[in-house]
Design a protein around this nucleic acid. Sequence first.
RNA 1: GGCCGGUUAGCUCAGUUGGCAAGAGCGCUUCGUUCACAUCGAAGAGGUCGGGGGUUCAAAUCCCUCACCGGCCACCA
Length: 722
Amino acid sequence: MEPKYQPELHEEKIYQFWEKSNLFEAKVDQKKKPFSIILPPPNANADLHLGHAMYVYEDIMIRFHRLIGDEVLWLPGADHAGFETQFVFEKHLKKQGKSRFDFDEGILFKMIWDFVQENRNKMESQLRRLGFALDWSKRKFTLDNDVVKIVKETFKKLFDQGLAYYDKAIVNYCVNCGTSFSDLEVVYQEKKGKLWYILYPFELMHPEKGGITVATTRPETMLGDMAVAVHPKDKRYKNLIGKAVNLPIVNCGIKIIADEVVDPKFGTGAVKVTPAHDPTDWEMAKRHNLGLRQVIDMEGKMTILTPQEFQGKKVLEARELVLQKLKELGLLVKEENHTHRVGTCYKCGQVIEPLPMENWFIKIKPLAKKAKELIVREKIKIYPKKFKKILLWWLDHFHDWNISRQIIWGIKIPAYYCNICKRWFVSVETPKKCPYCQKNHFVSVSTTFDTWFSSAQWPFATLMTQKENSKFQISNFKKEPRKTIFEYFYPTTVMETGYDILPWWVARMIMIGYFVTKKPPFFNVVLHGLVRDKKGQKMSKSKGNVINPMEMIDKYGADALRLALIYETTLGADINFSEERIIGMRNFINKVWNIGRFIYLNREFKIQNSKFKINNKMSLLLKLEKEFKEIKRKYLRLMKNYRFSPALVLLHNFLWHHLADFYIEESKKLEENDKINFFTRLEEVYLNCLLMLHPFAPFVTEAIWQVFKKGESIYQQNLISV
RNA sequence: GGCCGGUUAGCUCAGUUGGCAAGAGCGCUUCGUUCACAUCGAAGAGGUCGGGGGUUCAAAUCCCUCACCGGCCACCA
């Protein structure tokens, strides 16, 4: 053993050894308890970042459960990450002075495919460098044919039960990215703006005869107004309800209506109603049969339904023009400063334009109801528990889920519209005829699924699509039912991921997972926090505070990085990360190595002096025995409750400050016979500590174990039986 | 406006059934080390555990309240 632990000499070799020996390959074994985790599939469009290194939590669980004798499965995969990837790829194109419009769809798809394959391989080798005990024989990709088929089948099932529907509605549309989004992709930002008060007169030529004044932050949308609304109990306007006013510039009459959603305290208490460009107004228009006039198009420009001078103008230009016109007409009553929240695209930051559009939606209410039951009745447990409340809140507040994306990278929505029957049908395979009229006059849609629609199916889709042959290990008791990988490992034991994707992913997996399999997709949800920089700021390229996990591994080894992410942290809380933390853990790992080295050197000495009296009652030995027993008991309890950080602190403290600083120092003072005696037991205690540490620091513990046990792997050991 | 966190040593943070004399990492001071490890050891400085009130034999830990910081969410145009 070298005097210093040098991770670069061991890590790659060890991982190759694990992988070559198929140690991570899970099998069906009826005699054992299954323990399964599906790795949240990283996006196959970029390198791993520190957030991905947090999956070390999963590796700890997997290796720990392997250690206590469970049959473990940790299944890796990659996400095609639809819109995200297309966005990244377009940036690449832009650097080359090109855009997506320079290629036809098929070629573009193929280009992105190749780009993703390359990234995927890179990403997977990075997962290996982190030491993750993933079963590579079962790896899946969200665009694997068999997965795609399942995704489409799920959609068909939703459609058949009336839970997927096609509808024209106001959706969040980014005119820059050219696609619609679900509510979750909209980021609201505080912006300083103006609130304009506009008079809608009774008589166009005689504003002095009065009218009704409305307040708005978006005057340009008045061109699409269909009514003015007031609160039904508002005394100021009660006698005006039902009367008509003139819509300036457009020069037409619109009605004053009464609706509960109007807040009498805001502005003038009268609100302009623009059904085509505001979701609240859209709903109001439905209630009052108002109809709509779309004045903004998909490119963010004014449509031909506006007066000619506005047509083709961008929204902000149109706004200025409208204000100018109103001023000329003497109808702009006043303007005041106003801070309000504006919806922006989570990716490009552009203001989201609410537009009426036809999209596919998932009806959430019935799905959410079932999901809630699973959580409330603790069929699914959430760790840490504060997220239970948050998850339930979400399940109560989801709107219907817009799953259409107007992009090419993804799974095509397998929906077809029959021009004869005038209705939609869904077909998993490419259809030859309409199922209703048996003719072939139908068209398909060119939109793809929201990538989360496929991720929502990941736990069951990955397991259902496993090749079953030769993976069985039939138990000795032949009467046991023969089970498939899916039956054996589903529902999975744990879903571990960052709390930031709770509504995007976790909630949807529960809803869709239960819908398809009638079982929860997992029994436990464990949520980790975000990795921030030393000062608690978000890591970002622009701030230059990003720590690259691979660089850290090069410098200090994977074990040090892993421990630094766990040591003295709180599950579910963000962690402030720094290189210093890794250095501290690198030192600890070297300490562990050197304790081993010391024991190993003394072992030679022991063998040379093999004649010694047995003395098991030495006080130092008894003290050690007692303390170790206590440590092991605490460790097991903590690990079973997902309390990994305290378990690691416990081991750290015991190994360094008790075993090394106290017991080893004391042992040096012993007489020779006692010394030999003591070291015999000390070695056993130490090896047990290595086992307990192994889930956290797999490489160094394996390296030492192989020295002590002449090439045997620590991964296959059983903690209880040692 | 709703909800959820946080406030403990100079810095970053642990401290879950309330109880041994308040901890760790990094930093700092002094000393030591041919004999496993300087990626080391020994000793030490440094904290009114945000303020106030309450429950208790006992509270950093439970309850109430206030202050400050942070996060997530919401159709007030």
